[in-house]
Amino acid sequence: MFSAISSLVAPFNDRLANKAQSSHFRDALVISRKKHTLSPSETQHAIFNYMPSWITMLMRLRNRLVKLLGFKVGQTNFTTSKTELDVGDQAGFVTVLEKYADEIICGAEDRHMHFYISVRLDTNNIIVSTLVNKKTLLGKAYVNAILPFHYVIARVVINSARKAGRI
């Protein structure tokens, strides 16, 4: 099911690595590029703008639960009508923080954690990286609780984009 993706156990020294703080979670997934004309922003849109309905339902449930604990909640996905985003633009619950010719970095922050996602392109691959700086004990507990879901959902969403021919 996930054969197109190879997981990076230790993400490389990229722009997102510079944002890591002492208590953090970091991972990266790599998939080969088929559409070499897409920008990082267009690639992010092609991957995350089309969430399967079961993931959207899980995110809605998550939002209801974590709102009670003081987590910031917003949209349940990265949906945006623009395929080419600029710094400051919203893509669902994240904001574009940095944009380069080969990478787009988005993030969301609340009192418990700071979440980042990067979509970086190299000659042959798409690298989707996640970084979460955990600020509180509750933030640490939350990240540990959702990791099994994160591992499955990230792979499903990226492979879905590949199967649909969007990336």
Rank of each mutant, 00 (worst) to 15 (best):
P52R: 04
T37M: 03
K82C: 12
E84F: 10
R64S: 04
S118D: 06
I126M: 03
G88W: 02
G70E: 03
A4R: 06
T76N: 14
L137D: 13
A17V: 02
N13R: 05
V66A: 01
Y142I: 06
S7D: 15
H24D: 08
G165S: 03
V73G: 06
S81L: 15
P11V: 02
Q44E: 13
L69M: 08
R155T: 05
E109D: 06
F71V: 06
K134D: 11
V156I: 13
G107H: 09
N144G: 08
R111N: 12
I146Y: 03
G107A: 02
K72I: 04
L61T: 07
R33K: 12
E109G: 03
H24Y: 08
L29K: 07
K34L: 10
S23W: 05
R166F: 13
A161M: 06
I167E: 14
H45W: 03
I55C: 10
T37W: 04
K35C: 12
A161E: 09
H112V: 03
L147V: 15
I117G: 05
F2C: 08
H45P: 01
V94P: 14
S118R: 02
A101I: 00
M57V: 06
K19H: 11
Q44F: 14
K35H: 13
H112I: 08
N18L: 14
I127R: 01
N13D: 06
A108V: 08
K34P: 02
E84C: 03
S32L: 08
R155P: 09
V152R: 13
I146A: 08
C106G: 11
V9P: 13
S160I: 00
E103I: 01
N13M: 10
H24V: 05
Y151A: 14
T56V: 14
V132E: 15
S81W: 12
N13F: 00
K135C: 13
T76H: 11
